[in-house]
Amino acid sequence: MHNWHVYLSGEIHTDWRETIISRTEELNLPVTFSAPVTDHEASDDCGAVILGDESSKFWYDHKGAKVNAIRTRTLIETADIVVVRFGDKYKQWNAAFDAGYASALGKSLIVIHDPSLTHPLKEVDAAALAVAQTSEQVVDILKYVISGKLVR
């Protein structure tokens, strides 16, 4: 049986990733998950800590973004499915970029967000193969596409 690689991108302020991973494990689905670095401080500081400090905030962030892109690009490129979650607390520009990158690569894209974000995310939703509102719906999609069976 094929082992599916699923990349979980998006907001880091709720437990949506853990919900998807634990439910998928409970169902014994053949899925391996990956994600960006979700430690916000480490993600922000990695470039300057590893490559040298910067006095300009632009270059500080630029270094970090590039170092993080090594992980993000590699994991999206090797994923079978990319799931991107948008929360309503912060604007996740990086998540929108991940969704666009995945779409440009022809990856199967699943987007999760509250209906209140439908208008601002209309272009992202148009690129997605599925737009879910909950982590449980994503698990149901994974269960269906992997097994080929619809449980009602």
Rank of each mutant, 00 (worst) to 15 (best):
A65F: 11
Y60K: 15
K63W: 09
V84I: 08
G87D: 11
R85P: 01
E77C: 07
T72D: 15
L75V: 01
G64A: 06
R73H: 13
D61L: 14
H62F: 15
R73N: 15
N68I: 03
I70D: 08
K57Q: 10
A65N: 12
H62Q: 14
A69L: 12
E77H: 10
T74C: 07
Y60R: 15
Y90A: 08
T72Q: 06
G87N: 08
R85W: 12
T78I: 00
D80R: 00
L75K: 07
R73P: 02
N68R: 15
E77V: 00
F58S: 10
G64N: 03
D80K: 01
F58P: 02
L75W: 06
I70L: 15
I76M: 02
D61I: 01
T78A: 10
F58A: 05
A79T: 03
H62C: 11
D88G: 11
I76S: 03
D80M: 02
R73I: 12
K57G: 03
I81A: 01
D80C: 01
W59H: 14
N68M: 12
Y60N: 11
K57Y: 09
F86K: 02
N68Q: 13
K57A: 09
F86P: 00
F86E: 00
G64C: 07
K89V: 09
K89I: 08
R71K: 15
K89H: 10
L75T: 08
K57C: 02
V67E: 06
H62G: 02
Y90E: 13
K57E: 12
D80W: 02
Y90P: 01
Y60T: 08
W59Y: 15
R73M: 12
F58H: 13
K57S: 10
A65Q: 11
F86Q: 01
F58R: 14
Y60D: 14
T78Y: 07
A79W: 04
R73E: 14
R73G: 11
L75A: 05
K89T: 10
Y90H: 15
G64S: 15
F86A: 00
V83W: 03
G64T: 04
Y90I: 09
F58C: 04
V82I: 07
L75I: 03
T72V: 14
Y90L: 08
W59P: 02
K66P: 00
Y90R: 13
E77D: 14
V84W: 06
I81N: 02
D80H: 05
L75E: 15
R71M: 09
Y60E: 12
G87A: 08
H62T: 09
T74V: 00
R71S: 06
V83S: 02
D88P: 00
E77Y: 10
R85C: 09
R73Q: 13
A79C: 04
V84N: 01
I81F: 06
R71E: 05
K66G: 03
R71V: 07
G87V: 04
E77N: 13
N68F: 06
A65C: 08
A79G: 01
T72L: 09
T78D: 12
T74R: 15
Y90Q: 10
V83H: 04
I81V: 14
G64K: 05
R85K: 14
K66T: 08
D88R: 12
Y60A: 09
I76W: 04
